[in-house]
Amino acid sequence: MQETSRRGLVSLAVLILAGACVGPSRSDGDYRQKVANAAEATRSAVETARLVTRAAAEGKAPGRYSSLVLSEAEVDASSIAESFKRVQPPSRRIQHLREELSSVLDSSTSSLAALRIAAYQGDGERLSELAADLPRLSSKLARFEHLAAG
């Protein structure tokens, strides 16, 4: 009885861990879903940056707070990009999605890093200048979300 319960617990733990890990994609549909998820999560980081830079430009968000938010957004975007690139596309048909999204993810991470540095240096003008690129990145990422759904 004890052995059965132990096996049950081990199976449960394996199931949870398996569910939490980023696994390889088994089908095109599965890969498209991963594309959508990565784009959606990165867009969240980009939009967070957009809101905080707007608040900073209006004199509402202090420099230290903006710097913290942008730093977290950058770490999130970078970690999403790394995880996404580790997943292999299951077929050549959708290989292009990997390359296209990877490029947007890299651009997003770089933009967020530049914003974080400008906020840290208290360079409001540069911050507003760099933030002007965020809506374009957000739209690009949104297109991937819709592409994958279709």
């Binding site: 959606e40 969240s44 939009e47 809101l51 905080v52 608040a55 509402k60 977290e72 999130d76 949104a142």
Partner: peptide, 16 residues
Amino acid sequence: AGIQVEHLSQSVLPVV
């Protein structure tokens, strides 16, 4: 904005 909250700093953003 489609933001997924993962940090405390995002929770206070609306107040800012």
